[in-house]
Amino acid sequence: MATTTEPEAQVIDAALADFRQMMASDGYRVLWAPDPAPAPDSATEAGTRLTVTIEAGPEACADCLSPTPVMEAILQKQLAGTPYTVGSVTLPSGH
């Protein structure tokens, strides 16, 4: 199972800070975890692909969530300049 060190987590959290703030404005929380392993044919280093999970808070606006491609584009841009990429984005149930 892939893990991240504290300094690595700080890099990811810093890169995602603005995205987190934007999502919080609509009542959502952003969590991330390293993908357990890269795809067999992938050159991506293990642990550098992230699974990003969007969780709805109690005040979340159900209709306000950005379309998934928009969120993926934002995440890719925010993570540019770090060793990390977005593997997948998991939305709250019902989306």
Partner: peptide, 25 residues
């Protein structure tokens, strides 16, 4: 607060420099 969402949409549309306005949230 949602400037990023607008910019990402513009990029997805193949128009990354599209000029729009961001009002104070």
């Amino acid at each position: 607060s949602f400037l990023m969402s607008g910019q990402a949409m513009a990029s997805l549309q193949g128009f990354p420099g599209y000029d729009f306005l961001a009002a104070t949230h």
